[in-house]
Design a protein around this nucleic acid. Structure first.
Length: 206
DNA sequence: CGAGTCAATACGCATG
DNA sequence: CATGCGTATTGACTCG
């Protein structure tokens, strides 16, 4: 990471959604009294133990009240296949969508929504990582900045000490930065600064 | 389609 | 061990 300090991110920000797969069937969270939406039917698997069992009752709980979503959980196989497909292509054309839906035993709409969510969450993850990187970069720049300020102070002190009696005090504008080590050097052609520059240059290559 | 959001479910942890 | 709570995950929806 330290070897890339350019704004054009050379970070490896590729992400792998470790899609914390839907596990354990067991506790189907007490409050599943509400169900609706045949979109949640998973026609494929009667045997899929990972998948939430989907009971089909079209009645809303309160007898006509606003029916609420019953959430489908994809099986490991379904998730895996979707991930695989996403890995190959982040978008689907209608035909691919149909095919995939058929293979998965899902509705095309569900596949479409899954891809939308997947794209959005990839992007979010990416953004979070970039943010994290920028924060660290900022921290390192701040530190660098602090060091440079300190060095400037040191050089000023040296200059004040040595030039006090020589009337050769170089202007502040004569300071320059070594591109190699990013240290500040006095760039004037005085004996003093030549010497100092040589020392610093030598330090760069060590 | 992306962004924002809701809501169901899963999971970890503290408490009694 | 059961329960409640906070939080994370993720399928589905709405809106522009």
């Amino acid at each position: 990471m330290e070897n890339c300090h350019t704004p054009s991110f050379c970070l490896d920000l590729t992400i792998g959604f470790s899609s914390s797969s839907p596990l354990s069937s067991g506790e189907s969270g007490g409050g599943s009294t509400m169900r609706e939406l045949d979109i949640n039917l998973v026609p494929s698997s009667g045997t899929e133990e990972e998948c939430m069992e989907v009971e089909e009752e079209d009645e809303s709980p309160n007898g006509g009240g606003p029916a609420r979503r019953k959430k489908l959980r994809l099986t490991k196989e379904q998730s895996h296949l979707l991930e695989e497909s996403f890995g190959q292509n982040h978008t689907l054309n209608p035909r691919e969508k149909e095919t995939l839906a058929e293979i998965l035993g899902l509705k095309p709409r569900q596949v479409e929504v899954w891809f939308q969510n997947r794209r959005a969450r990839s992007k979010l993850k990416q953004t979070e990582m970039e943010c994290e990187y920028l924060k660290r970069w900022f921290g390192s720049l701040s530190e660098q900045n602090r060091k440079l300020h300190k060095e400037v102070e040191e050089l000023r002190a040296i200059n004040v000490g040595s030039y006090r009696h020589s009337h050769l005090l170089p202007p502040a504008s004569a300071l320059s930065m070594c591109p190699r080590c990013e240290r500040v050097t006095a760039a004037s052609n005085t004996k003093m600064s030549h010497l100092r520059q040589r020392q610093l240059s030598a330090a760069c290559y060590n």
